[in-house]
Amino acid sequence: MGLTYQSTGKLANREAFDVPVSANEPVIALAGNPNTGKSTVFNALTGLRQHTGNWPGKTVLQTKGIFIHEGQQYTLVDLPGTYSLLANSVDEQVARDFICFAKPDATIVVVDATCLERNLNLALQVMEITEQVVLCVNLIDEARRRKLNIDTGALTRALGIPVVATAARSKEGLPQLLESTAKVVWKKIKPRPNLVQYIPEVEAAVSLLEPKVKALLGNDINPRWISLRLLDGDITLIKALEKFYGQQKVKSVREVFA
């Protein structure tokens, strides 16, 4: 019962975001905080093969580009730069909805090597939605200049996802980034993100809610993450779920929140 929601596949949802829907043209999302050199990474990967427009229905700039790696074409979608995905602004909603509903084949999270602590906040949130994550530790040249040593091996172990250090301005590390991303897309690497553990009260509530989410929505969208958002009363996600999973059976949502 209740499995009607699963009928909407990720490819159909991608159409709603105006990105390629063909199964043999992988879509990669580029997430990151503002000022991390995310657009430098984007420009370095796609060059002049870019297209800008608006996110459907939003006055938020959407930049898409393509790149070819080992004969395979990929579409790269530059998400708005945000500190978080907790949907406090339109930018955050756009970024969250894309990762959540268009289900990119991989999401590269660009972080600033000189400001890792703040930036990992976003990476941890992305990892809660999707396992297909690659961490791009950008501005590594800047970090070296400041005598900061970043142990990418330790990061890989702590996060459970591939980590690549880059300096996009000088194209350092970009081949490795493409390599890791392609492996994640084609399931040659299966990231196992180590998720954030919450306080016992929250974890207890999640364990009660998660089976119910799974029963209703299936595994299509990470049930643990949806449970957390429901607990924290994120009404924008509920509206997005309504939109992408049909209006039926969800009549009472607004009444509940009224």
């Binding site: 500190y83 978080s84 907790l86 406090n88 703040r118 906040n121």
Partner: peptide, 11 residues
């Protein structure tokens, strides 16, 4: 409300 969320989100 939103102000609280934003401030928390900033860290």
């Amino acid at each position: 409300g939103l102000t609280r969320r934003r401030l928390l989100d900033l860290g």
